[in-house]
Nucleic acid binder design. Structure first.
Length: 666
DNA sequence: TACAAGTAAGTTTTT
DNA sequence: CTTACTTGTA
């Protein structure tokens, strides 16, 4: 941004019909009236309540194009979306409309935006640009460390485990509650440990602050802190991003809504797009009431509703509308479509899980015969383990697939091990990674590692400090420490690029790994190879590490052949990860009570969210929708029990669904 | 003090 | 299947 930009802001620009001729794109011909109203809106707050498949993305893209065509510099537009993938996809489509200029639009998730701003401008609140981002399992590592350090582990009453504590701490922050209150409301069974947990949470805060560590929640909170306390920073950001657009607004939480308010304080040019009926992230503190509250935060906001669905045929929409119509909460709109079609969604009863898998695999093969590409088909499920049996069946039949959501291979121990070595190079104060790196050395356990870490952090040259440790080491740890010192020196010495640094780390780590995971190291080696390929393109270590924490590649390798392109692969996905996507044919497996909704959805609010999930799942389908469930399902404590169809489908009128029972052929 | 092996208990969704 | 904690051995 070299040129100085002067903004004229006396009056919102209102275009008379004649002015339309100044635009290359014929907006009025390409958009319906509601979409057009949203796209041509220029200054001031705008809320777009957009139903599933109503052209929400299209509206955002055309608004970006319209702004650019009106002379707004692309760099002054900030597009906050749910995943960076979504942002990139939007910008790609915008580029098709207005050309390369769209590439300069800023975009990403709240977290990645916060990361960038804090690295660039975080100094006033005491942040160094090389801070480390802790993902959830890093956070748990720290909690665990403090738990042992505080002597909370061995007591008569079992102290809650690290995951639960981390969950409570994070949830409190996402819902913007005091931890006491959060424990009382969502974790009443932890009440007896409250004093210790509060103490631990306090230690966790100072531990992070002292070592330049930020967890996911810190990214948002510290950005808010920066904007609130330093008006000059806020002004600078507000001046550079003069038009802010937020996708999936129903899934933002209070702190994110607050960030929007702060960023837009100086110009109020905010466009929020969302669907209250599709809010599925309240477990992360998201609150769909943010949508309703938008006009209160931004008085005078214009509201546009998009209700026409362009995605699904009427038969699919009828089922989806019926599911959501039984919700306790009344939603703002009902979808309609002009896509007629004779297909009614199938409700398929299978004898057991394996039969369900065979049905899905068989139908997919038939569809392929009919000319439907695998890339046009998806299988959705509530929890990622629901697809295990199906994955085996797909492999058996050589159907290539890609799995999204659930398991992240970046979180497996071996990948985290490799990353830890690079993280201590990027931020030598990163105690979490030091702990990992040191305990990997043979002869060093938690005790020794912990005693040593503070000295390492204080040292100017960590590699030399490790070498010194090797000299003093007892118990056969010296050899391992020497090799580690050599690696660290090598990694630090030259300004190498991530791919080389990873290659060097692997040379050191692979022998260590073969010993540590003697039983399954071949699989882990393949993972590491895949990981190496993924990181090939990175030029900066910091960028790579930030990406790995914020946008981890979460595709599983299983069932994926190197030769398969995206079009030739079936998608398996959790419903959460399918958000915003669509396919020609969608299968929803395990539509059974006890799986979907799961056993832990007991409260009314939780059940409402499960219902919205069912709505999201069914509205992903364009032409065909198959809902299936097994009537015999395995339960840990009861063995095989009778399965029942999901309560959300139970009351759907019979004429809206075709029911089918699977039969073994002779 | 480090670590392997064994027992027992709890299991969703994501940045 | 993972995590927490105990016990036995070097």
């Amino acid at each position: 941004m070299a040129d100085k930009v002067i903004y004229l802001r006396e009056k919102p620009v209102s275009l008379s019909p004649a002015d339309e001729r100044n635009f290359k794109i014929k907006y009025a011909e390409l958009l319906n009236p509601a979409q057009l109203a949203a796209v041509t809106h220029r200054d001031g707050p705008l809320l777009v309540v957009a139903g599933a498949g109503s052209g929400k993305t299209r509206t955002l893209i055309y608004r970006v194009a319209r702004l650019i065509e009106s002379g707004v510099p692309p760099g002054a537009i900030l597009l906050l979306t749910f995943t960076r993938r979504a942002a990139q996809e939007m910008l790609r489509r915008a580029e098709q409309l207005v050309g390369d200029r769209a590439g300069a639009v800023a975009g990403g998730t709240f977290h990645s935006f916060a990361n960038n701003v804090l690295r660039r401008m975080g100094a006033p609140i005491g942040l160094k640009p090389n801070f480390t981002i802790l993902d959830r399992s890093d956070m748990e590592d720290v909690v665990n460390l403090l738990r042992t350090r505080m002597g909370l582990a061995s007591r008569e009453r079992r102290f809650p485990k690290k995951g639960t504590i981390a969950e409570a701490i994070s949830m409190a922050r996402n819902k913007r509650r005091a931890l006491e209150e959060e424990i009382e409301i969502d974790f009443p069974h932890l009440g007896e440990h409250q004093t210790e947990i509060l103490e631990l949470a306090k230690n966790y805060e100072s531990y992070k602050r002292e070592r330049g560590l930020l967890d996911y929640d810190d990214l948002l909170y510290r950005l808010a802190e920066l904007l609130e306390q330093h008006e000059n920073v806020r002004r600078r950001l507000s001046d550079s991003y003069r038009y802010i657009m937020i996708d999936e607004y129903q899934d933002t939480n209070l702190i994110q809504a607050d960030l929007v308010r702060l960023l837009a304080m100086n110009h109020r040019n905010v466009m929020a797009v969302g669907d209250d009926a599709q809010s599925i992230y309240s477990f992360r503190g998201a609150n769909f009431r943010n949508i309703m509250d938008f006009p209160a935060i931004f008085p005078g906001a214009k509201i546009v509703k998009l209700e026409e669905n362009y995605r699904s045929i009427q038969g699919i929409l009828d089922v989806a509308n019926d599911v959501i119509s039984r919700a306790g909460e009344k939603y703002t709109k009902a979808l309609f479509t002009q896509r007629e079609g004779g297909f009614r969604p199938f409700l398929v009863r299978a004898q057991d899980e394996h039969m369900q898998s065979r049905f899905v695999a068989q139908r997919i093969l038939e569809l392929r015969e009919e000319g439907v590409e695998l890339g046009q088909i998806a299988v959705l499920f509530r929890s990622s383990f629901h697809s295990f049996d199906l994955e085996l069946e797909l492999q058996r039949r050589d159907i290539p697939f890609i799995k999204r959501g659930g398991f992240k291979f970046i979180e497996t121990a071996h990948i985290k091990d490799v990353l830890a070595h690079l993280r201590v190079i990027a931020n030598p104060a990163d105690a979490v990674s030091w702990l990992r790196v040191l305990t990997l050395v043979k002869g060093i356990g938690h005790r020794t590692a912990e005693r040593t870490i503070d000295a390492l952090i204080a040292a100017d040259d960590p590699a030399a400090a490790v070498a010194k440790l090797a000299d003093q080491a007892r118990g056969g740890a010296d050899g391992g420490l020497k090799r580690l010192a050599a690696l660290l020196a090598e990694l630090r010495d030259v300004q190498k690029r991530p791919p080389e640094q990873i290659a060097m780390t692997l040379e050191y780590y692979l022998p260590v790994m073969r010993e540590a995971y003697a039983d399954d190291y071949p699989k882990r080696e393949r993972d590491l190879e895949h990981f190496q390929n993924l990181t090939e393109r990175y030029k900066s270590l910091e960028q790579m590490l930030a990406d790995m924490a914020l946008e981890p590649p979460n595709d599983s390798l299983d069932g994926m052949l190197a030769t398969d392109s995206d079009d030739e692969r079936l998608t398996l996905s959790t419903i959460h990860s399918a958000k915003g996507l669509e396919w020609k044919v969608v299968f929803l497996i395990w539509a059974a009570d006890g799986r979907f909704p799961g056993p832990q959805s007991v409260g009314d609010d939780e059940m409402e969210e499960e219902r919205r999930l069912m709505y999201v799942a069914s509205t992903r389908a364009r032409d065909e929708l198959y809902l299936s469930y097994p009537i015999h399902m395995f339960d840990r404590s009861f063995g095989f029990v009778m399965g029942r169809v999901s309560r959300f489908l139970e009351d759907v009128p019979a004429e809206l669904l075709q029911t089918a029972t699977l039969q073994e052929s002779e």
